[in-house]
Amino acid sequence: MNGGQAALELRGVWKEFVKGDRRVEAVQGIDLDIPPHSFTAILGPSGCGKSTLLNMVAGFDAPTRGEVRANGAPVSSPSPKRAVVFQEPALFPWYSVYENVVFGPKTQGRSAQTYRPLAERIIEQVGLKGFASHYPAELSGGMKQRVGIARVLAMQPELLLMDEPFGSLDAQTRTLMQELLLAVWERHQQTVLFITHDIEEALLLADTVYVMTARPGRIKKRIAVELARPRTIEATTSPVFNALKREVLALIREESVRADAETALE
C-alpha cells in the first residue's frame, strides 16, 4: 500500500436503464480512484452519463453492476458525508438563506453554538453577507447557487459532489462563481468531484480531468492538470492551459465523430 486510502473508489461500475422493452446502457465499466483533498473533474458531452455517475456516487441511484466506495465503505444511500451541489440550486423556498445553510448541520444534530458561527462565516465567504434573512425567491440565479455551495460547506462533508453547478448561469456569473469556488476550495480543501461539459471549467478547477465518451459513457482518458495553485481566471490564458485545451478538444472531436458515425449506422 502506498499510504492513504482513496476518498472515492469506483470499481467496474455499470448502469443500465430499462426504457420500455429497450435497455439503455448509461455508463460502462467505470474505474476511478480519487485521492483525498483532490479536485477531480469529469468532462463529457451531454447525455454521456456523467450525471448518472454522480447520482450513484451520491447514493441516489445504485449501479447495475460494480461498486462505489467512499473512504472504504460501500455507498448504498445518500449521506451527509457526500454533499451534493445540483445543477439547479434546489434550495428550500420556504426557508431563508440562513435556514437553508444550517439545514445540514441542524439535521445532523449539531449544536447551534457550533453551526451558527460556521454558517455565518461561510455565508460571508460566498459573498452573501447581508442576505442571510432573504428568501431564495428574492435572489438572483448566481446568488441562489452560492447558497447551494454554502449549505454543503456548512455540512463539512468528506466529499463534495458538484453536478454542473454553474451550467445554468450566464458566462460572467459563471466566471465569478468559478473563482469563488477556487478560493473556497483553497480554504477548505475538501475532496471534490466536479461534473461539467465545459472544457475550460474542468481545466481551470481540477487537478485531474477524466474525459468521458458519449453513449455508452466510458472513461476515455485521464489528464493531469499541472497548473500551479492557487489559480485564478488568468490561468486560462497560460500556454500550459492552451496546450491541455487543444488536447482535450482533439479527444472530444474524435469522440463526437465516432458517435455521429455510429448513430448514422444505426
Binding site: 451520491a58 451527509p80 457526500r82 451534493v84 434546489a90 445540514g104 445532523q108
Partner: peptide, 12 residues
C-alpha cells in the same frame, strides 16, 4: 420536487 427530496436526504 425530487431534487428537494434528494437535497434533504444528502443533508442527512
Amino acid at each position: 420536487n425530487l431534487l428537494l427530496l434528494r437535497a434533504a436526504r444528502m443533508m442527512g
